[in-house]
Nucleic acid binder design. Structure first.
Lengths: 392, 392
DNA sequence: CGGCTTATTTTCCGCTGTCAATGAAAGAAA
DNA sequence: TTTCTTTCATTGACAGCGGAAAATAAGCCG
């Protein structure tokens, strides 16, 4: 049906070479010596690993003379050539697909969203194929090949098998999405859970670079959490992990769609905020944007709803910090648009509920453009591509 | 002051040899072929790794003919010789020290508890030295050398540095316990947090064998939790991790010593149960044993206190399961003596609060003899000893 | 006693990463 | 200008780890 997937593989012939490449990819241009130090290898190993990667065009040597030593031979910087290969990343939601074309450094070159009328796997696949074609045409215009695609789907996703085990929004069960999409697009396809995909993007290209333990909390329609422990994304033995949204913060709180009361999501999810703003103000706000507008206008009932949400989120973050002791927690998601409405409550309730030194955890926010979820999908594709080399 | 520490080191000259030894240690007698399979190595590698370990006496070949194949050459079983080396493990609490002598398989050969009158580091060290001498004398009686000691202390402990950063019960700050104890005992000393030490014991010798992701929840005076993620014990970036005891289960609940309301420990810790039993029944029970006796007698107020505790613990476990998706949760601790009083509530509230497939997590209980914490300390010493080999 | 089967060992062999020495590229000093 | 010093990078020899395949061992069965 199509060209064989994985026509192009990454020429890192040893685990050390992959490791060095990833270090260069996420920690920016570095001298060989510095690469060796950060990857825990000898300079000689770096020299040997870097050469074939430069020959293959994945790394370039820049003569940037910024941090030249006062004395001695100037170092040359080694840097990933982002333009060497392009990737497609697509986030699939229940009612639209968002696609991006990125370079090897996960910089978004082009973004596109399409509505999704029909959620049946076949219909979604057709839309995905069309979107991928469009993004690949864009890549052709740049004269660079797309070498992999990543798909991000919410729910229980088995990345290793490329299977969507169960996605409530799409109403899918056991869909072998990677296989199907690879067949229709002719590209190697990686499928992962959306929050984990975003976590990979943060780990390699965002605020998680260089950290072995951090958490990413997404605030929006749902409240999600991606965890990196011991340098690896936590997937969970049964496909469930990072469900901070269903941590209970108040057993007497509002009913959650999961059946429990007082889940973080039942207090701080968009729907919960909207419901509370409606109840408190009598204004029939349609969505979170309108609810936030009311709060920004100073309406007390609306502000109260956000304060409560902030408190719940802070408590959820404290729970993660108490259990895992991450170095950093990154807050992101569409809900950040209203961040000023609950920033204080998040910080206060985190500080109050964090136990001992867990409070030393660095809590940051990070804006999330609409295409960020798709960029996460691209990050998983980049990860798979780099792992596709001949070694192992 | 003493003989140089680490007189005897473990002769595993390659990482693979250590891995094979650990597999044999925790997964019992196995054939070489099976060892190869479980460690992900070739049979040839096993042969090469096993020989020097047999020569050094750490492994023995048993001709057990149980699972002989119907056809072909019978397999010979490879098994760790527990009697090859002995270890000391000591748990230090605020008012006593509990010491054990174990063999290499972490079987307890001798246990001893001593009261602790004075918590000052120097006084504790003297007690530790005396206890260690006694245990080593016991070992001399067996004609086998003690090759390492492990100390388990609650609080913030930096195992790598051998430092007790902060221990509330001992009122210690920044005590270089490993160094001090090594000097007074002449043994290589490993120091770790008590719950993490117990987690290591479960990982290598208990219900966590063969699992890469599990949690150990200890129920007693405090509620603790040790986590194994990606095959490694989670230590936390700031020395805090596994603080399930300070996960909030009810923001309107009783005040916890940590300053918050409704922590798991404030509902399910021994002190909380005792307080609630007193309040509900009017009987001035002195401790958890008396409280449990009352509940066993069918006094409703006491039973209610246990029911609440069980609910809190179940919720705490669900929180861990929702965030990390472990394969198994092991419940242990002194509080298990009253397990029948809240088993049902733990199971029910876990099942209710677990999100989706997280409920598939296997929840087990495991009895905990009084010397178990000390055995955990010995497990860390065994771990350090095996890692003490020439490689790395 | 030969087949047959499975377990273990042996014998190479490729590959990886390190070591120690050497080369390269500056600025500084003579 | 030449030489020294300093630091970065490369080279080439090398040790050793773990794998593949072939050989060997050890039973059973006819």
């Amino acid at each position: 049906m199509s060209s064989p997937p994985r026509a192009e593989t990454f020429p890192a012939h040893t685990p050390a070479a992959s490791q060095i490449f990833v270090t260069a990819l996420s920690q920016g241009p570095l001298t060989r010596l510095e690469l060796a130090r950060r990857a825990g290898l000898s300079p000689a190993a770096v020299t040997k690993a870097v050469r074939p990667l430069i020959e293959a065009g994945y790394l370039v040597e820049s003569a940037d003379q910024d941090a030249r030593p006062a004395l001695g031979r100037p170092a040359s910087l080694v840097c990933v050539d982002g333009g060497r290969a392009l990737f497609v990343g697509i986030k699939v939601t229940g009612d639209e697909v968002i696609g991006v074309l990125t370079d090897l450094c996960c910089r978004v070159l082009f973004a596109r969203r399409l509505p999704l009328a029909d959620r049946a796997p076949q219909a979604v696949l057709t839309t995905l194929a069309g979107l991928t074609q469009e993004l690949m045409a864009e890549a052709d215009g740049l004269g660079v090949h797309v070498v992999g695609a990543g798909l991000a789907v919410s729910g229980d996703v088995d990345r290793g098998e490329g299977m969507v085990r169960y996605s409530p929004f799409l109403e899918w069960r056991e869909v072998p999405l990677a296989e199907l999409a690879a067949a229709t697009t002719g590209l190697p396809v990686t499928v992962d859970n959306d929050v984990r995909a975003l976590t990979v993007a943060e780990q390699w290209f965002g605020a998680g670079v260089g950290l072995s333990d951090f958490a990413l909390v997404t605030v929006g329609a749902g409240i999600g959490c991606g965890l990196v422990v011991h340098g690896q994304v936590v997937a969970g033995a049964h496909g469930v992990a990072g469900e901070i949204g269903h941590v209970t913060v108040d057993p007497a709180g509002p009913l959650c769609h999961c059946g429990n009361r007082g889940c973080v999501e039942a207090v701080a999810g968009d729907a919960a905020i909207v419901a509370r703003v409606r109840a408190a103000t009598g204004v029939q706000v349609a969505d979170a944007v309108e609810a936030a507008a009311l709060a920004h206008d100073g309406i007390p009932g609306a502000q109260e709803a956000y304060a409560r949400a902030g408190e719940a989120i802070g408590r959820g973050i404290a729970t993660v910090a108490n259990l895992l002791g991450p170095e950093r927690v990154i807050i992101s998601g569409e809900g950040l648009a209203a961040y000023d409405l609950f920033a204080e409550q998040i910080r206060d309730s985190f500080a109050a509920a964090a136990f001992g030194s867990a409070a030393r955890c660095d809590v940051q926010t990070r804006p999330l453009p609409f295409e960020e979820w798709a960029r996460g999908a691209a990050a998983t594709a980049i990860q798979s591509f780099i792992a596709s080399g001949p070694h192992q």
